[in-house]
């Protein structure tokens, strides 16, 4: 945590120095505030990641992962990606916490230390991470006007959807017309997942018989009610 505190102090110094270097204008102040908030949130994310790695109690890991998702959703909001933030909060902090807890109920809640060496996995993850970071250097700058998406793709969508009498909402036109097969595939995946979950739930009730919807329970309730009326 000393490291995290120091990083936060560095971020604060950075913001103060940037505010001193530039004349105080509204946009400059807002940019500095965004930078500062991002610095603090990313530092907290790094601290929580290290804590998840070091933590041996699985229940604590699950809760820390939920906290990570909430902080990451805040980062997404700062980056103006509100829809991604909503998904991150509901899936990361909501559903996966519950699923991880359900898994935890079936296993032990203490992690035993690894016997094997972690050098090779560490090496692989460092190499892959470095390759990904290196790959981002080929991307256009964040919000650049000369990016291909602004030069070719968006004007084509706008012109084509106007020419072919597509829905006036261009996002709907993109999702339903331009990417119609993609959306069909997504819907298929969601339906398949839903059917699979339903089958798993029913099968679990029938096999284990410890749920309240099992057949034994129904029989017992039926006997109770018949005994009550008789």
């Amino acid at each position: 945590m000393i490291l995290a505190n120091k990083a936060v102090e560095n971020a604060a110094d950075h913001a103060v120095a940037a505010a001193a270097a530039n004349p105080p204008g509204i946009t400059k102040l807002t940019e500095n505030a965004e930078l500062f908030v991002m610095m603090v949130l990313l530092t907290l994310l790094a601290a929580i990641t290290l804590a998840i790695i070091r933590q041996r109690n699985m229940f604590g890991v699950v809760i820390l992962a939920g906290i990570y998702s909430f902080l990451m959703a805040s980062v997404m909001i700062i980056l103006d990606a509100v829809d991604v933030a909503m998904t991150e909060a509901s899936v990361g902090a909501g559903i996966s916490t519950v699923v991880l807890l359900a898994t935890l109920h079936l296993t032990q809640s203490i992690e035993y230390p690894q016997r094997r060496s972690v050098l090779i996995p560490f090496f692989i993850s460092v190499v892959v991470g470095a390759a990904l970071v290196w790959g981002t250097s080929g991307l256009p700058a964040f919000g650049a006007k000369t990016a291909p998406i602004h030069g070719h793709v968006a004007p084509t969508f706008i012109q084509y959807s106007a020419d072919h009498k597509m829905p006036p909402n261009i996002v709907t036109a993109v999702l339903a017309d331009f990417r119609g097969f993609d959306t069909l595939g997504e819907v298929t995946v969601v339906f398949t997942a839903g059917i699979g979950v339903l089958l798993l739930l029913q099968g679990g009730w029938r096999v284990t018989g410890n749920g309240r919807r099992s057949e034994d329970d129904d029989e017992q309730q039926g006997m109770d009610s018949s005994g009550g009326t008789a």
Partner: peptide, 29 residues
């Protein structure tokens, strides 16, 4: 406040400290 709550979530000796810290972080978000 987020910084303090995250410290509590990481250090927190019991599970309930962490659960409370998680709830507080949601509120602070």
């Amino acid at each position: 406040a987020l910084l303090f709550v995250v410290i509590r979530a990481i250090k927190g000796p019991t599970v309930f400290d962490r659960a409370l810290a998680g709830n507080s972080i949601g509120t602070l978000a």
